[in-house]
Design a protein around this nucleic acid. Structure first.
Length: 900
RNA sequence: GGGCGACUAGCUCAGUUGGUUAGAGCGCUCCCCUCACACGGGAGAGGUCAAAGGUUCAAGUCCUUUGUCGCCCACCA
């Protein structure tokens, strides 16, 4: 039964096959009744508008690695998938699409528009979950959730009503931030600040009844149309005499009071400030203090409105230009100075936002924040990397009320109704029949929807059935872990903690791992909807999903951002190919070997030869004891690293084990043994090879699920098993640990490397077999080397490996030595003496410096007295070793020079 | 205006609690298409750990200052 196995790993077909298999077999469906400790994780719900971008790829890779790892270790595991309705960005997408078809969404009307969005969601909203299936995420698809589903909307209303009844949600008229492109109010978090070079316009306000001017400085001249006062500091001598008088607002010819207020900074600008209560947060407060009228001069889309007099209808920036021109023409522009200031920009539309007083729904955050701060302080939620804690505390301690309402159509409609007669508010879980205050039946629901993060804030418990005490909720809440990017720490993580504790009395997750962001080569953040990023789907096609996963994992050091490049993906792809080819070697040779009559099952039944303590008598070969000791160490490192979200360390460790240890040394070492005429011996070799390979596949599976699943199925073992994903993660056996074997094999490796080094430096033909001599003083080391004579000869391409009883004569060949052994290849084999002389000189000099440093230290009384004993001892030993080595080299050099 | 992080090999980055000779991948040099793999094998070169002080017997690692870069938070017109 000779097999056909491709020479290079071709991931495409294999991936789609197993992706389909995992979904079809519903392998990852969680069972509340299954045994084992619980590991539950909910996905950071991607936007329904989205397709898989590189940030998701990282998120999802990390989540899936940990999920698969836990599952294989016997945890009752749930990975719950889902999507976010993403109020503002979804609305933007659909509005744009309609506009492309020449349809104005406002003309459609709300009901029709919502219908179109749902329709759109039906058609293309599932893209990202489809991609998640393709990349093999081990989700429980039967539990998939959507934030705007009827089921979760119920939870949203429940929470809203409860918070309202507790007095934590209120409606009021305050200063808010308005985006003229999105045409909605935003929360603080949706606004980003950017330093820009701007201007400070100094404008003359004539003081009524005098010839004086009061000069005010502003960065936004267009807002002056809504000015209702000018303020100076009460103690400012320059202006004291003007307080109480009126100023004439230029262009509008409105008389406005000159007031005194402590808020004014005498040092800034002219020390006089125009007050625009409707368009500036400070001015809003001042307006309240001084009972000033509030004049909103803008429309929802950033044009000047009817209150703006002659400027009505102009775009806000057009209006600014015109106003400046007009002021100049009237001689009222004192001067213009350069001014650097931070301007506020809508995170989504990138337009400059406007401070604007409006009536909105808010949530009081202080009371919610306190227990959320405490939970992290007490360590009930572990935050990784830890330095993010400070950021979290800082934000939470200075938290401000959350603007909940949005002037959008797509989202959770606010469950508040107003009666026609008195505008009484009725907040209810379901549409009420009459006003709760006056009993009127003429009710209208609030047109606004909730900030999309309101429903995402409930995600860990809303998805598990809360407020009902469902089996899922009881079993899987609190979730074990949250993995997401640090860019949404405040948007999402903090709010989940606050709302989770408030409503369930428990933290929503035991740990938060905030991962790195993936950046472009130029260091720019690749984020949702930006379009700057690499396309992971295309890259997965090109390199393989496993390679992508492994690449991301191996770069995902906590706290550092990732720059993904082709060469890195390429090397991960090479690793996948290496694994594939190691398997190919196993399978092809196994087939050949099996013709001898031994069944595959027999060969594959693991029988690790490390049960007895390994020794030189041959009962347990050194190579096996060494490999399984390395395996044990690798398992330990991987487990430890993954427990601490150190993906890069886990990946690196398994990479080194597979490539460096298993392929480069173990396979090469046992190759001759596998073909041995001694069939018993060969069978045992095969069993060990398989046992190690099997463990390696399991170890690799969380990182590279497709490749390992494929190879696991191609392996001849375990009849009846369904998937490696349900197999066990390898556990290090107690008798695998073997410090002696590690050390002893290390010596053998040194011998082989030293021999190869001579060959390479002396430019010997790589294929030419040469004779070498070896002198070992230490009897144990000599026995060890002699016991492994055959493999050494094979791996170092030697014709003969001799152990002369007399010491070696440096004048007859090139040598290498360590404290344990001396090796020599004679000049007759074609080596260059002069090159060796030069090398020796350099080496002696290097040792000289090293010895000198060590000598100084060993003579330092402070060091001897204060450093730990073992450090002092080790240093002494090291120095003596160096001295001996140097002496040898000097002798050798002397003899070589004498001979030449 | 506050707060945080980074600076280690040509490039991209690791480096847990301070302790012999600071690691990896890619790139580079030399040799090899050996019957798993050239997406490979073997052997190498390459670093005064941004700078200056300090603590310590001992500093890439701890402290201070400086420089360069990046990020977050912040209602100064």
């Amino acid at each position: 039964m000779a097999r056909e196995i491709a020479k290079a790993y071709e991931p495409q077909q294999i991936e789609s096959h197993w992706a389909e298999f995992w979904v079809k077999e519903a392998l990852f469906r969680a069972d509340v009744n299954a045994p084992g400790p619980v590991f539950s994780i909910v996905i950071p719900p991607p936007n329904v508008t989205g397709s898989l971008h590189i940030g998701h790829m990282l998120d999802h890779t990390e989540i899936d690695i940990l999920t698969r790892w836990h599952r294989m270790r016997g945890f009752n595991t749930l990975y719950l998938p889902g999507m976010d309705h993403a109020a503002i960005s979804t609305q933007r997408v659909v509005v744009r699409q309609l506009a492309e078809k020449g349809i104005d969404y406002r003309k459609l009307g709300r009901e029709e528009f919502e219908k179109r969005v749902w329709q759109w969601k039906q058609e293309s909203g599932g893209k990202i979950t489809e991609q998640m299936r393709q990349i093999g995420e081990s989700c429980d698809w039967s539990r998939e959730k959507f934030t705007l589903s009827p089921e979760l909307s119920r939870v949203v209303r429940e929470v809203f009503v409860r918070l309202y009844e507790e007095g934590l949600i209120y409606r009021g008229h305050y200063m808010t931030t308005w985006c003229p492109v999105c045409r909605t109010v935003l929360s603080d978090l949706e606004v980003v600040h950017e330093e820009r070079q701007g201007h400070l316009w100094h404008i003359r306000f004539p003081v009524v009844g005098t010839k004086e001017f009061l000069v005010v400085a502003t960065t936004r001249p267009e807002t002056m149309l809504g000015d209702t006062a000018v303020a100076v500091h009460p103690a400012d001598e320059r202006y004291k005499h003007l307080v109480g008088k009126k100023a004439l607002l230029p262009l509008m010819n409105r008389k406005i009071p000159i007031i005194a207020d402590e808020m004014v900074d005498r040092e800034f600008g002219t020390g006089a400030v125009k007050i625009t209560p409707a368009h500036d947060p400070n001015d809003f407060e001042a307006g309240r203090r001084h009972k000033l009228p509030e004049i909103d001069v803008m429309t929802d889309d950033g044009h000047m409105n009817g209150a703006a007099g002659a400027y009505a209808g102009l775009d806000r920036f057009e209006a600014r230009k015109k106003i400046v021109e007009d002021l100049k023409a009237q001689g009222l522009l004192e001067k213009v100075s350069e001014h650097v200031h931070a301007i506020a920009i809508c995170e989504r539309s990138k337009t400059i936002v406007e401070p604007r007083a409006s009536t909105q729904w808010f949530c009081k955050m202080k009371t919610l924040a306190e227990p959320a701060i405490a939970a992290v302080e007490r360590g009930e939620i572990r935050m990784v990397p830890e330095n993010r804690r400070e950021e979290y505390f800082n934000w939470m301690r200075n938290i401000r009320d959350w603007t909940l309402s949005r002037q959008l159509w797509w989202g959770h409609r606010i469950p508040a109704w107003y009666c026609a007669e008195h505008k009484h508010v009725t907040v209810a879980r379901e549409a009420p029949a009459k006003c709760s205050t006056c009993g009127s039946g003429d009710l209208t629901q609030d047109p606004d929807v909730l900030d999309t993060w309101f429903s995402s804030g409930l995600w860990p418990f809303s998805t598990l059935g809360w407020p009902e005490k469902t089996a899922d909720y009881e079993k899987y809440y609190p979730t074990s872990l949250l993995i997401t990017g640090y860019d949404i720490l405040f948007f999402w993580v903090a709010r989940m903690i606050m709302l989770g504790i408030h409503f369930t009395g428990k933290v929503p997750f035991r740990a938060v791992y905030l991962h790195s962001l993936v950046r472009t080569a130029s260091g720019e953040k690749m984020s949702k909807s930006k379009g700057t990023g690499l396309d992971p789907v295309a890259l997965n096609q090109q390199y393989g999903t496993d390679a992508m996963r492994f690449c991301l994992a191996s770069m995902a050091a906590p706290g550092t951002d990732i720059v993904l490049t082709d060469d890195k993906l390429g090397s991960a792809r090479n690793f996948a190919n290496k694994i594939w080819n190691a398997a190919r070697f196993l399978f092809l040779n196994l087939d050949k070997f099996a013709h001898g009559g031994t069944t595959l099952e027999e060969l594959a039944a693991p029988e690790v030869r490390t049960k007895a303590p390994y020794g030189l008598n041959g009962t347990v070969p050194l190579i096996d004891a060494w490999l399984f000791a390395r395996l044990a160490g690798t398992i330990e490192t991987v487990n430890d690293a993954l427990s601490n979200y150190r993906f890069h360390e886990a990946a690196q460790s398994v990479y080194q084990f597979f490539w460096g240890d298993f392929c480069d040394w173990y396979i090469e070492w046992v190759k001759p043994e596998l073909q041995s005429v001694d069939r018993e011996r060969a069978i045992v070799a095969w069993k060990n090879l398989f046992a190690a390979f099997d463990a390696a596949l399991q170890l690799l599976h969380p990182f590279m699920p497709f490749l390992t699943e494929e190879l696991w199925h191609q392996s001849p073992q375990r009849p009846g098993a369904k998937s490696i994903a349900l197999d066990k993660f390898p556990e290090a056996q107690a008798n695998w640990k073997n410090a002696g074997a590690l050390e002893d094999f290390g010596l053998i490796q040194e011998v082989i490397t030293a021999l190869r080094n001579i060959r390479a430096e002396m430019k010997l033909d790589a294929k030419r077999k040469v004779a070498a001599d070896c002198v070992v003083q230490n009897p144990y080391a000599r026995d060890l080397i002699q016991a492994n004579l055959e493999p050494i000869r094979h791996l170092a391409t030697l014709s003969e490996f001799r152990f002369p009883s007399i010491s070696l004569n440096p004048s007859v060949g090139v040598m290498r030595s360590t404290p344990f052994f001396e090796l020599q290849i004679a000049f007759g084999e074609g080596v260059n003496k002069q090159a060796e002389i030069a090398r020796l000189k350099k080496e002696i000099e290097r040792l000289e410096k090293d010895i000198e440093l060590k000598r100084e230290r060993t003579q330092d009384q402070d060091f001897i007295n204060k450093a730990p004993k073992h450090v002092v001892e080790n240093l002494g030993i090291a120095m003596v070793e160096r001295q001996i080595e140097q002496k040898k080299l000097k002798d050798r050099l002397a003899q070589l020079e004498k001979g030449s």
